[in-house]
Amino acid sequence: MITAHIRDYASTDRDAALACFRSNVPAFFSAEDEDWFISALDEPDGPNFVVVCDGKVVGFGGYEVSTSYNHAVLVFGQIHAQWHGKGLGTMLLIHRIAHLKTHAQPTKYLIIDTTLKVAPFYVRHGFEIVSHWREGFRDGADKVDLRLVLY
Rank of each mutant, 00 (worst) to 15 (best):
C53E: 10
L74W: 09
F76Q: 01
V65Q: 08
K117C: 01
V118H: 08
N70S: 13
F127V: 03
V51Y: 00
F21W: 11
P44C: 08
H95F: 02
N48V: 03
Q82N: 13
D54S: 13
F121R: 07
T115P: 06
D42I: 10
S23Q: 11
F76G: 03
Q78N: 04
I97T: 11
K101R: 13
A98K: 15
F49T: 06
V50W: 05
F76N: 11
E128F: 00
L88S: 04
H103V: 00
F121L: 05
A72H: 08
N48H: 09
E64N: 10
R22G: 10
P120S: 09
S68E: 15
R138W: 13
S23K: 12
P26N: 13
F137L: 10
R134A: 10
D54K: 08
G85F: 07
P26H: 12
G55Y: 11
R124S: 11
R138A: 15
A72N: 07
R138N: 15
F76W: 14
A119D: 05
F21C: 08
I97S: 02
P44V: 09
R22W: 10
C53G: 02
I112H: 01
A104W: 07
W36M: 13
F137V: 08
L100R: 13
Y109T: 01
D33Q: 12
V51W: 05
S23P: 13
L110N: 02
K101E: 11
R124Y: 01
K108D: 01
K86N: 07
I94R: 12
L110C: 11
A27P: 00
V52P: 00
A141N: 13
L93T: 02
Q105S: 03
L100C: 05
V52F: 00
T115S: 15
V118Y: 07
K86M: 08
G55D: 09
E135A: 15
F49D: 02
V75P: 01
G62M: 08
P47C: 09
A40E: 05
W83M: 10
R22Y: 07
S30V: 02
K108T: 12
S23L: 09
T102A: 06
F60R: 03
Q78S: 06
P26I: 13
L116Q: 13
I38S: 03
C53M: 10
G62P: 09
D33E: 15
A72S: 11
G87Y: 02
G46E: 07
R124P: 00
D54L: 08
V50T: 04
K101L: 12
V123G: 04
I112P: 00
H99F: 06
G85D: 03
L41C: 02
G136K: 11
F76T: 01
P44F: 04
W133H: 15
Q78C: 03
I129M: 07
T102Q: 10
F76C: 03
